[in-house]
Design a protein around this nucleic acid. Sequence first.
DNA 1: CTGTTAGCGCATTCAG
DNA 2: CTGAATGCGCTAACAG
Lengths: 363, 363
Amino acid sequence: MARRKPTGRGITIEDVARLAGVSTATVSRALAQPDLVRPETVRLVTEAVKASGYTPNSSARSLRRQRTNMVLVVVPTIANQMYAHVLRGIDTGLAPAGYGVIIGNLDNAPDKEAHFVDLAFSRQVDGIMLLCGFIPRGRGRSLTETGLPMVSLCAPIPGATLPEVYVDDAGAGMEAGRFLAGLGHRRLGYAAGPKGSVVDQTRWTSFRQGAIEGGVDPAEIVRLEGLLETRFTYGSGLAAAESFLALSSRPTAMFCASDEIAIGFMKVIRRAGLQVPRDVSILGFDGIEQADFTDPVLSTVRQPRHDIGRVGAEVLLGLIEGGQHDGAREVRLPFELLDRESTGPLPRRPALRSVTDSKDSSG
Amino acid sequence: MARRKPTGRGITIEDVARLAGVSTATVSRALAQPDLVRPETVRLVTEAVKASGYTPNSSARSLRRQRTNMVLVVVPTIANQMYAHVLRGIDTGLAPAGYGVIIGNLDNAPDKEAHFVDLAFSRQVDGIMLLCGFIPRGRGRSLTETGLPMVSLCAPIPGATLPEVYVDDAGAGMEAGRFLAGLGHRRLGYAAGPKGSVVDQTRWTSFRQGAIEGGVDPAEIVRLEGLLETRFTYGSGLAAAESFLALSSRPTAMFCASDEIAIGFMKVIRRAGLQVPRDVSILGFDGIEQADFTDPVLSTVRQPRHDIGRVGAEVLLGLIEGGQHDGAREVRLPFELLDRESTGPLPRRPALRSVTDSKDSSG
DNA sequence: CTGTTAGCGCATTCAG
DNA sequence: CTGAATGCGCTAACAG
């Protein structure tokens, strides 16, 4: 009822000032730093605000304060459960500080990269979170050149010196290798992620190393890639499984670069008549919710998805509000190997095609 | 190399103007409406821009133009595959028009609602997309009062008169009911979604109706809810399954309000020794990617997730750029019932507990 | 404690 | 076709 005449369109600070009988500066202060204003005046202003329904215009405020209270989050694809939960964590960490999220969904469209670079250069955000494992470029310039605070989550970025928040992929890979070796498996496979990815590289290398430590012959560790594009998706799992089935001598245990890959992989080999884990043990990576609902329940290396996001947000806020980059801070979060139903001890006889060849393995 | 001295911090339009030897007005025009500027001048400006690395400041531009080129997307939780894909669709529809997405993740935190209302009132966005099936409120005011263009996706909002883009839930529910009845099932169950939700209500009512049309006795259609909070999540499926198992006379076919519910449900009853679809048929809703990877593959009603987002974005852009709300436009997208592996004809004998009681069913 | 003043960086009048 | 001037709405100096 007390709604004031909307002069032009929105209610401005001037309307409130008039209503409260004070200057705009006082309104601004009463709202931002009430302790610097006489209580009675604060009350007047507060009431005027309530009466008018005033909300400060964010563009004007951003322009003036050189701060937008927004963060750009660049993610390979929002459709992946893993990233979705990291995003939730980011939101959890950012919201209390009054920051919002602008979503930068790459979604395998390289031209979008440039768009996010522009966004950053236009100062639409105060900081950047990279979940993509590389630094976006476009129009001949890179995000680093914005000078904006930036952190990398989920994946380290080689050559860059920004704070990183992620799990110890190398340690996890090692443990995965030792784990499967410890179950007695002597021929292992790795269902690969994207070839260029540091994360994939790390997991593969360390897995191999862990397996060797566990007593596996290096020649008996095979890397399986998809035929076309290999990413962390179901599709890559399907493709890797096809490669797997085509092998004359198959691994008895597989380590997969992601849960999606593991789930895709498992589907194909089960359709082919193999049983998990009797014929093949399968170990995933990520610990997405869906892995709790496969049958058998997927063994996997769980990453603290939510925490990665939350901690990443806190690190970034520190950079934004604290000011100085205090060198390349690095936060390693703990992983956890979940030994569940899709992994088991070495079966009596090696897994062969359902059409059993009379050919012995050489050795 | 040609980088100009960064006077204060960023490169402004003034720097470019100086560099090109023209006024700031000309720079602005050369960039926004080159046809109004002499080609030679445009060239000068373009070169100056390139040399300086100038990108217009978005806060200043937004303030001046009363337009931010951002859209707020309010989503119940970003962790749900369904919403994640709708979001992708939204991005697909928005990006070509130069609009970005600010993510409004409710995540079951009611206090966040108010925050998004403030965001809208502060004119930080030009439009709003609601995937939550209701109109967020906070601080005693509702999003509608912002006067901003708004559309509702995935769910109609009762009482509101905004454009809606969603599948025909009623038709889908009917078809689900007829489908299961057509398979010969005479005792049906519905694993419910959130009680207050219009979507749940619609699916349940129409499912019931379809089943009755298919010849099922209304008394033989049971609604199963979770014990605590019932939502569209795995957890609700688990809870519904517990209720299911406790029934003395169990349905032989279940319609689930979402795929997550269906998957959670399936897990529990299979652990209890029941087989799908031999003992119980299960039909989901949504058509998330994960449903392709269950064993058996989940039958479900597929929604065009991506299209819902894309079309919704286009409708909203029409409102934003076109200006006038042309009444409550409504777009219904087609659903598709996927008859796959988790549904089958009525089994010979009704599903009982694995510990077979000698008690006959009354009838 | 409060008001006045001065921009933040840009796009749009209005004159030339 | 171009330049000078104005103000979008707000906050931070600086005086009182």
